[in-house]
Design a protein around this nucleic acid. Sequence first.
DNA 1: CTAGGGTTAG
Length: 608
Amino acid sequence: MLSFISKTKLFRYLHTLPPPPKTASKKRAAEQNCLALLELCNNFPKLSQIHTHILKLGLQTNPLVLTRLASTSSDLNAIDYASSFIFGLDAKTHLYDTFLFNTVIRAYAQTKDSKQNALIYYKIMLKDCIFPNKFTYPFVLKACAGIGELSLGQSVHGSAVKYGFSDDIHVLNTMVHMYCSCGGGIEFGRKVFDEMPKCDSVSWSAMIGGYAKLGMSSEAVGLFRKMQIAGVRPDEVTMVSVLSACTDLGALELGKWVSSYIDKEKVPKSVELCNALIDMFVKCGDVDKALKLFRNMAEKDIVSWTSLIVGMAMHGRGLEAISLFEDMRSSGIVPDDVAFIGLLSACSHSGLVEKGRQYFDLMLKEFRIVPKIEHYGCMVDLLSRAGLVKDALEFVESMPIEPNPIILRALITACRAHGELKLSESMTRKLIKQEPMLESNYVLLSNIYAISLNWEKKTTIREVMGKKGIRKTPGSTMFELDNEIYEFVAGDKTHNEYKEIYEMLDEMGKEMRRAGYVATTSEVLLDIDEEDKEDALNRHSEKLAIAFALLKTPPGTSIRIVKNLRVCEDCHTATKFISKIYNREIVVRDRNRFHHFIDGLCSCKDFW
DNA sequence: CTAGGGTTAG
């Protein structure tokens, strides 16, 4: 199309947009120009001018124009405009019916918030007896995946079978993806996957990615092993999903293996793959490796920068995060809201209060980014950690949004730490109103009662919890050794060497007490005597994992463990002692961040 | 005109 007229001429044409020509040949030329312009106008702000021009030329029912409008524009208005004319078309007189519908369905399937329209047009299509073809289903299924309603997906599955497209590999692959993206659909996805006559790397990636997204990371890794046995060559997309599973598990050794596998098998390193590698190294505890990888990347996008900034924040390396952010700006990349979340959380974790305040203002003033609850959350956390309780409370008052549980928890922790017990109690009650089924909120309340020596109220908490039927989220800790992931839960005796582990725990306890350790029993909810409480704390999964790691790794080496919850007060204190007594660097990843324990101190500076 | 992928406060 563009061979008819140069781009420059086209844009000039756009700016002048001449009146509709009178002769037929000139009309055809104008139509050609119009089509060519539409091709160029993806994201082009002058799209509305072309709309008007299309109307003037009388091209609004031309299927070619309509398809181009819908398919070349990511502008929802253009899609709506194009699709609304489809109603006006006489189905019998046009040759492009299925094609036209496919284009509109595809356009809606690609939007963020209007995916349901793809299904509406699919239904119109069937009602008008326009038959879907093999291209229709991938679009429709993609829309279903985005909406995430299982029943909807199942009905589309049914119609794909009815119209005879359920043996096409593209349709089946999208079907797997659709089921994996719908709540409760993973088993259906697995069934489709298992029953596929032929699988390619896309099918495997869809299934592995499905497990990875749901946090079923061991299944994802297991399926990747099966893929290798099946002899299907993984590509860069497969590796991204496998890496995201490693990231979730915190399995650095596994992640390193995947990384060298990528090099060995010469899997092309797309930007997305490199970003996944960076994220893996960051969240498995090796930021420096992530940094090295980042420096070697030929092309970096905003996600690459942000992943690393977030990484620095998680490890308490705030100044490096700030300088990365500035380097990113200098390199011409405009920061987005996510980059600011990383930056602000970095300031917060490193106590850079003034920097944080400056950047928070800069965000709106220079970059026109309206702060979201996450940004407010970072600021409340920043002020709270710095001990500026009053500022934090005032800040929350000034926010245009109601504080959510995350913000409340930051405030409560700050108030508790600075003796504002009455205030922290009332806020915790507010928090429990918002999240009545979360065990950790009751632990918080119990802890506040313990500090204020209010034993009566403390003992009633368990009753309340029992009445509400609140179930404890079991804490677990993972430790990776010789390509094996060992998972510990509190009081675990399922391990082969549990006797040795408990002996080690006893020895650790003795050494720690000799060095001045006193158990922090205030967070134990059980109504038992102090000695039993200590015993309960001593069996926490984190301590079991550390005991096992001390037994199994050579002296002087660092220990990396991954917790599924936030590290508890007592384990945090104990780990500080252990790092000093046994002269080990202990790296703990908890729900939120990393703790690097060295020589009796922690990188989080005891506020987390 | 067809499928699967990366960053988000505590």
